[in-house]
Design a protein around this nucleic acid. Structure first.
Lengths: 222, 222
DNA sequence: ATATACATGTCGAGG
DNA sequence: CCTCGACGTGTATAT
């Protein structure tokens, strides 16, 4: 990895065109050909290129080209504060825990958290318009489709479950099909949409429940 | 900005939990409190924290905490290859060309690209369920709502313009309101949705048109 | 501060 | 290979 700290101007041309006037930045060149330009603020690079790329350096102009997508990043170096290559080794991979998939599993084991009498028939049931998170039957035996959101639900989440319901109605010609969105919190527009489309909003912060109880104790809640 | 090149192990706990075993990485600490951890591959940080944060360093353990979202990034430093602070200055802002916003402006100047006789009444017209990209009237005088996508349109884009149409019908009690999606390309699901909901799909790659002609020559196309 | 939509989104799973 | 939805999404903009 090469770490270049410099004052520079940067241009990008590819999916769009960007221009960044002169200023100090930290530029990382990695062995896989990827490049990341960090400005002084923000967690994400202000400019970047995915590898593989070809890097050409003519004097004070560094030109990074990515043939696969015909993108070019051009860095005009005006002053070098620091420039060093590091021979580094890293074989570790990032391990994640606590994704939406797990959420479904926990809810599938404790559907009463959503509603008394609810029974999960199938998880991730595939339809023509996408997978339904939880395909259920309620206490009255009605088909009930549940879309689970780990974070705040927005209008799009309501649209999503409405699509599933339409498809379910078409393919199964069932009497009434209910549509639910389960989320820790709902955006105002989502509430409006849900009311308009007859979708039920269930406020339920499963990650927090899991944190407060043990992962195996979800059945304790009601 | 502090640039730390080191062998380290990293843990993140917040919206989920991640763990990264020992390896060499480049860590950037910025003045705004944000932190970016770069592994040896990939343009984007493998771990990161948005600012503002508090950073505490006890011996070989660096703990970054973000109160706003109760997230913690923990870096256990095993070996320091390089560690340096740089006093940097950068007041430039990234200028982008070709964003969706600009597309609206161009289309507003050349609405005939969408359809002959179309007239733009208002851009970014606000409704209770979101802003309508282009609020227009067609040659026959009918209200016509246009949703513009810079990239391939998916089902959600169709849902979006349908929301706007519903709202328009409710608030204005207009006769017939047309709904259009303009995009360089449409996903099959989007086509199906559009047909089912009576939404028209207009294939139009405005960025390419702009690239082929000059930005001021859009009116030449028909 | 909150709410909303964009993004060079990027990434991974499923058919 | 394509199609799709999730993402620790992050980030800017408008209310």
């Amino acid at each position: 990895v090469r770490v270049l700290v410099c004052r520079c101007s940067i241009g990008y041309a590819g999916r769009l065109t960007t221009r960044l006037a002169s200023g100090d930045r930290v530029v990382l060149f990695k062995e896989d050909g990827s490049v990341a330009v960090h400005a002084l603020k923000g967690a994400k690079p202000i400019n970047y290129m995915a590898g593989p790329t070809s890097v050409r350096e003519d004097d004070d102009v560094i030109r990074i080209y990515r043939p696969a997508s015909d993108e070019t990043l051009t860095i005009v170096v005006e002053h070098v504060h620091h420039d060093q290559r590091h021979g580094l080794v890293d074989s570790a991979v990032l391990e994640r825990e606590g994704q939406e998939r797990e959420l479904h599993e926990h809810l599938a084991r404790a559907p009463h958290l959503i509603e008394a009498g609810l029974a999960v028939v199938e998880r991730e049931r595939l339809t023509d318009v996408g997978p339904v998170d939880l395909w259920c039957r309620d206490a009255a035996g009605r088909v009930t489709l549940v879309e689970v959101k780990r974070v705040r639900a927005v209008a799009a989440a309501v649209d999503q479950v409405v699509r599933y319901r339409e498809q379910a109605l078409r393919n199964e010609s069932l009497g009434g099909v209910r549509a639910l969105v389960v989320a820790p919190d709902f955006a105002p527009q989502a509430r409006v949409m849900a009311a308009a489309r007859d979708v039920e909003c269930i406020v339920l912060d499963v990650p927090r429940l899991l944190a407060e109880a043990g992962p195996d104790d979800l059945t304790l809640f009601a």
